[in-house]
Amino acid sequence: MALHPKIAEIVANLPHPEGPLDPVAMRAGDEAQVAPLAERLPLHAVEDSVAHTPTGEVPVRIYTPTEADTYGVLVYFHGGAFFLGSLETHDHVARSLAHEAGLKVIAVDYRLAPESAFPAGLDDCYAVVRWVAEHGGELAWDETTLAIAGDSSGGTFVAAVAARAHDDGFEKITHQVLYYPSLDLDFDEDRYPSLRENAVGYGMETAGLAPFNAFYLDSGADPADPRVSPIKRGDLTGLPPALILTAEHDPLRDEGELYGRRLREAGVDATVTRYAGAGHGFVQHFGWIPDYHKAFEETAAFLQGGGK
C-alpha cells in the first residue's frame, strides 16, 4: 500500500540536510522537539539513575509501570544512527513499552559516536544488561523475564548484545525485540531490493545511510564485523526468541526480514511483522497513529507469551 497519508504529509515537509552533518546541532534540534513532561504518558514512577558497570558509569532511566512486588525487565536501546538519540528523545517510546507490556523498562544512555569510538556504545548496552541481572534484588526483577529491545541502530545493538551474551554463556536474556533494525552496514544498493525500492520519498533515504552512519564507521566500526553488521554472524543458533518489526517503505526492510528468516533456519523462534504503509522510524515518530501503536501491543503480546 502507499505510505500512510498522515506520514506522507509529514514526510513531504521534511527538510533535506545539505553539507556536512553537524552532530551537535542535530542533537539540539531533536531535543527541541521533545514533549514537555506534563504531556508525557504517566507511569507509576520514572527515575534517572546510574548503572555502575565494568565499562564505567552508564546513565539509565528506569520506568516502573505500576506498583508491584516484582517485575519483568526490558532493557531498551534507542536509535539514532549511533550518533543521535537520548533518554529524552526516546522517552515516549520507553513509556509506551512499560505501559503496554507491564514491564519495568530500563533505557540506556549509551555513549555516542563520534565522541566515543566503537565499541563504546555496544559495551555500555551489554554492560547494563549484565548489571540488571547482577542487581535484580535492587530492581525488583522477577528473575524470569529479561528482554532487550531497540529501534533502528538500537536494533543493531539488540542483535549484537544477544549474540555476545550467548557467546559469553550469559543465558538470562529471554526475548529480543528489533524495530526496523540496521543489521548490515554495507550500504551497497544492490545488496537488498528495498534499498532501491524505497530509496527516495519515504523519509529516510538510501543515499543518506552512508553519511548518517559515517560517524560510527569512522570511529572504528567495521561493516564486516558481526558486532557491527549482525546479519554477517555465521551461527545464529541458541539466540533468544525474536520479534522483528519492519516497515513496508523502509530501505532497511529486507535485511531485517532476512535476519528473521536466518534466525528461524537456525532454530530460533522468530516472528517478523511488516507494517504496511510505514516508513523507517514509525515506532518512534508515528506511534500515536493507531495503526502503528499496534507495534507496542504486538511487543507486549510477544513479551507476555514466554521466552526461553
Rank of each mutant, 00 (worst) to 15 (best):
A295I: 01
Y71M: 12
F118E: 09
A2Y: 01
V73N: 08
G19I: 09
R262A: 05
P15T: 02
L37M: 10
D184N: 15
G56I: 02
P223C: 10
I62C: 06
S96D: 06
A2T: 08
L239Q: 10
A38T: 10
E9Q: 02
K232T: 09
G267A: 02
H280D: 01
G220D: 14
W131K: 11
P65F: 02
L239W: 05
A117K: 13
A98V: 04
P241H: 08
G201I: 00
G279V: 00
I148M: 09
G137V: 02
G306I: 15
T70M: 08
A210Y: 05
F83A: 05
P240G: 08
L87N: 06
R164N: 13
P114N: 06
Y63N: 08
D22E: 11
A199M: 13
K294N: 12
H99G: 07
G203Y: 00
E297R: 13
E265S: 07
E39P: 08
D22L: 03
A12D: 03
E47Y: 01
V128L: 14
Y192P: 12
L236S: 10
A68N: 15
D222V: 00
L41M: 06
G238T: 11
Q33V: 02
E265D: 15
N198M: 07
L84N: 14
F286S: 01
R61L: 11
T145Q: 12
W141D: 03
A301H: 08
G306M: 15
A81C: 12
G169L: 07
G281K: 03
E31I: 05
D222H: 05
A224D: 14
G137I: 01
L97S: 08
F187H: 14
A94K: 06
T89Y: 03
K294G: 11
S96N: 09
H280N: 02
G154Y: 02
A45C: 03
M1Y: 05
L252D: 11
P15F: 03
F118H: 14
A133C: 13
G260K: 04
W288G: 00
A35Y: 03
Y180F: 15
P54G: 05
H280R: 07
D69E: 15
P251V: 02
P240V: 01
V128F: 14
L146P: 04
F82S: 06
L195N: 10
G136R: 09
I148D: 09
H285K: 12
T156C: 09
G208L: 07
G307Q: 12
R264C: 03
L112N: 05
F286C: 01
G281M: 04
T174A: 07
D222T: 00
G306H: 15
E248R: 02
P241K: 10
E143H: 14
R40C: 01
A278I: 01
I289A: 02
G220R: 05
P5Q: 00
L236M: 11
V161R: 10
D269W: 00
T64N: 09
E197I: 03
L122I: 11
K104F: 11
